Amino acid sequence: MLADCIFADLFSGTAAVGRLFKNHAKQVLSNDKEFYSFVLAKHYIENTKPLKRAQTLIDALNNLPPLAGKIYQHYALGGGEGRLYFSDSNALKIDAMRTQIDKRAFWAY
C-alpha cells in the first residue's frame, strides 16, 4: 500500500504519472524544467473539486479565434524556431486560450 509513501515524478511532463498516483500516495512531488508542466501538475495533482461552470468556460475557450503568441513562436514549426512540439493549429489555440485565461474578466463567465 502506498498510502504512507511520498511519490516523486522527477520528469513530470504532462503530469500523467503524478495524477495517477495522487489518490494512492500521501504526497506527490512533481518536477520538470518546462513551465507548462508546472501548470499541468498544479491542476492535475492539487485540484480535487469539480468546477460547476467548467463546461461554460470550456465552450468559451474553444470558440476563441487563433492567436500567434509564445507557444506558437517557440513550440510550433510555423513559429520559425524549427520546433514541432505542437501542431501550428494547436499552438495557435493554446495561445488564444492562455491570453483569455490571463484576463480577469474571463472568470466572470
Rank of each mutant, 00 (worst) to 15 (best):
V39W: 12
K103G: 09
D4I: 03
G18K: 11
H74K: 10
R98T: 06
L40I: 08
F86G: 01
K42H: 00
F86V: 07
T99F: 13
I101T: 04
A25P: 06
A41K: 12
P65R: 14
L2E: 00
Y44L: 11
D59C: 00
N47T: 14
S30Q: 13
Y44D: 01
K42W: 05
P50I: 04
K22F: 02
I71M: 08
N90V: 04
K52E: 13
L20C: 07
R83S: 13
G13L: 09
L10M: 12
S37E: 07
A41D: 03
F21A: 09
I45P: 00
E81A: 12
R83T: 15
L10W: 00
K70W: 12
M1H: 15
Q27Y: 08
A3M: 08
F21R: 06
N63L: 10
I58C: 06
C5F: 07
L61Q: 08
H43S: 03
D95N: 10
G79K: 05
I101D: 00
S89P: 08
A105R: 15
S87T: 15
S89Y: 12
K103N: 13
F38E: 05
D102K: 06
A41W: 12
P66I: 05
K103E: 07
L10N: 00
D95I: 04
L61M: 12
A60C: 01
F35T: 02
F11P: 00
F106S: 06
L51P: 06
L77G: 13
A16F: 13
K52C: 01
R19K: 05
I6T: 13
A108E: 10
E34V: 07
P65W: 14
S87W: 11
L84Q: 15
G69L: 15
N23G: 12
K33F: 03
D9S: 07
S87M: 14
Y36I: 10
W107K: 00
R98W: 03
S37A: 09
L40D: 02
T99R: 04
A8G: 10
S89M: 10
A96G: 10
G18V: 09
D95W: 13
V28T: 09
G78K: 12
H43Q: 11
A54K: 13
A96N: 02
A8I: 08
E46G: 01
S30C: 15
R104M: 14
M97N: 05
D95Q: 02
T14D: 10
T48W: 14
G78D: 03
G18I: 04
N90G: 03
I71Y: 08
H24G: 06
H43I: 02
K70G: 05
E81W: 11
I45W: 09
I6P: 04
N47C: 15
R53L: 11
D9G: 07
K33N: 07
A96C: 01
A8T: 06
G82A: 13
D59L: 01
F7R: 05
G78S: 04
K26I: 05
Y109P: 00
G79Y: 09
K93S: 12
R53W: 04
G80T: 10
F11V: 00
A25R: 11
K33E: 03
M1F: 14
L20H: 15
L67P: 06
I94K: 05
G78E: 11
L61P: 02
E34Q: 10
G18R: 09
I45D: 01
F86H: 14
A108Y: 05
R53C: 08
T14K: 01
L10T: 09
H43W: 04
